[in-house]
Design a binder for these strands. Structure first.
Lengths: 160, 160
DNA sequence: TATTGTTATACTCTATAACTATA
DNA sequence: TATAGTTATAGAGTATAACAATA
């Protein structure tokens, strides 16, 4: 199930008319405010487009990581995506019961479980990656390729 | 109450060592992924620094909007910040009982309520705005002033 | 009939504590 | 003693439906 935000398709009654518009000049000078607003827009587009695959953002991140890091453990996924272990359990279980991933004993650590995509999972995430590429391109359509690269570089300067 | 994320101060045991690091090259090419990661970092710094004022991000946004838009209504705040009306009710009630805002009858619409900062609220949000400016500067310390402007401009190209 | 503000409520996301089995 | 994975659960945040007062 994907949460359907209202925003682009705000009902006319709730849409801010010109006369309703408040002065947001101060907020719009803040990196945090702008980052959050941009993320909300992208995440809405993401949810809409990825609904057909039954994938939320975190689901996609996990499957994409497993595509490029076969055999990764829950612990590694948690550390990489900043997810808390208890919150990954049901996600992994869901992917497993959908037949998208397989849990195999870890070769060198009896406590850990190596996570691998099934052929079905591999097919799905490969398609999903293409859909995400397209969706990202659409959501950032007003940015040139160079601007898009710049944006990513500047964002990474904040969190990396 | 402010949520305390773990992240900067990840316990050594959970921190990703070099050997644990997964390949995140694909995710790091996505605007959405980078935007979210950057926002999580800023929002963590925000929560830490604004705890002394007892303000969450949404609280600050509302108070700052009221500072620059005295008499704004709940409906206008909702439209501007993309908050749903039911979710603003307890926020407004809290600000009211803390003595930060006053609710006055709207001059031209008997259904609406004009929201105004009290002198105490005005003092608090003025201090808070300075704290936010400092916090933003710290959180984006690795960006030059020009890069910071560029980042904001590019983010607005996505959501505005 | 439509809109503002509200109540009640449900669903998702994120967080902590504590357990088990392995190391 | 510490770590990987898990269970149970609590708390934010975000969503919908429906109501009263007013337009």
């Amino acid at each position: 199930m994907v949460t359907s935000r209202r925003k682009r398709d705000t009902p006319p009654a709730l849409a801010a008319h010109r006369s309703d518009a408040l002065d947001t000049a101060v907020l719009e000078r803040l990196v945090g405010y702008n980052t959050r607003r941009a993320w909300l827009v992208i995440s809405e587009v993401f949810a809409e487009r990825m609904a057909v695959y039954g994938l939320r953002q975190v689901d996609f991140s996990v499957l994409s990581l497993l595509l490029h890091n076969p055999g990764a453990t829950s612990r590694e996924l948690c550390a990489t995506l900043d997810i808390l272990p208890p919150n990954l359990v049901s996600l992994i279980a869901g992917m497993d019961s959908r037949g998208l991933i397989e849990r195999r004993p870890h070769p060198r650590d009896g406590r850990a479980v190596g996570l691998h995509l099934t052929p079905e999972g591999e097919t799905l995430v490969t398609e999903a990656e293409q859909a995400v590429t397209q969706l990202e391109s659409d959501a950032s359509a007003r940015l040139s390729a160079k601007e898009r690269e710049t944006l990513i570089r500047l964002l990474q300067k904040i969190y990396l």
